[in-house]
């Protein structure tokens, strides 16, 4: 019978430790914001991890950063491949060290936020841009696009002012090739590029969840 629960109640490092100390061979599936991550154990060692688009240690470290998510442990499931050879003890130490370093710096806060957006199913790219259209944090550069979306955000703010409403919570734009969500973050703007096949209505609740 599978063990199921939520990472809010049982933290992932404890879950990994438990499976390794019990010398389990199992598959651990984690569902967070509509996206799935997997960690495979073989005779008490972590041998493989996946969290779209990453595999191996990078995927595992990203999974360690998830604050919550439903999990399921299925015993006796074999890994489809082996991408991790580091001892589980060292893996956990390295993963937790990376998280601590990220939390300690302001930059880490932004990075972690973007990681969380990237873990939402359907989010293709995420960035934090300034109101002047410059990139503040993100893994891609598109000066024209950022200027364009900073302008869109600015116009939307002005419209909210004209309507005497609260500031716009979200601005969504659908172009021929893209779906974009913009939202305020401190004094900056969060820019999310959404895969065309996803409805913005289905993504927005997950985005709100990350922002909370």
């Amino acid at each position: 019978m599978a063990l199921v629960g939520n990472l809010r109640d049982l933290k992932l490092p404890n879950l990994i430790q438990l499976n390794c100390m019990e010398r389990n061979s199992a598959k651990l599936t984690i569902e967070h914001a509509g996206k799935y991550g997997m960690i495979y154990f073989h005779e008490g060692q972590v041998v493989h991890a996946e969290f779209d688009p990453d595999i191996g240690e990078k995927a595992l470290f990203r999974l360690l950063g998830l604050p919550e998510g439903k999990f399921k442990v299925e015993n006796g499931v074999r890994a489809p491949m082996s991408t991790i050879s580091t001892h589980w003890n060292n893996l956990l130490l390295e993963g937790l060290h990376q998280l601590d370093t990220m939390h300690a710096s302001g930059e880490g806060k932004d990075r972690r936020l973007l990681e969380m957006f990237m873990s939402v199913k359907g989010v293709r790219r995420a960035a934090i841009i300034t109101r002047e259209g410059e990139i503040k944090k993100g893994d891609f550069q598109d000066d024209k696009e950022f200027a364009l979306q900073a302008l869109s955000f600015y116009e939307a703010e002005k419209i909210s002012g004209l309507l005497k409403k609260e500031k716009s919570q979200f601005i969504t734009l659908v172009t021929q090739s893209k779906r974009i969500i913009l939202t305020e973050y401190d004094k900056d703007i969060i820019y999310l590029d959404i895969e065309a096949k996803y409805q913005l209505e289905t993504i927005l609740p997950f985005i709100e969840q990350v922002l909370i």
């Binding site: 419209i159 409403k165 609260e166 716009s168 601005i171 734009l173």
Partner: peptide, 20 residues
Amino acid sequence: RIITAHNLDEKSVKEIELIC
């Protein structure tokens, strides 16, 4: 202005939504 600015960058906007 949002629509025309997108056209400048050859990105035709079909839909804009402001959610407050």
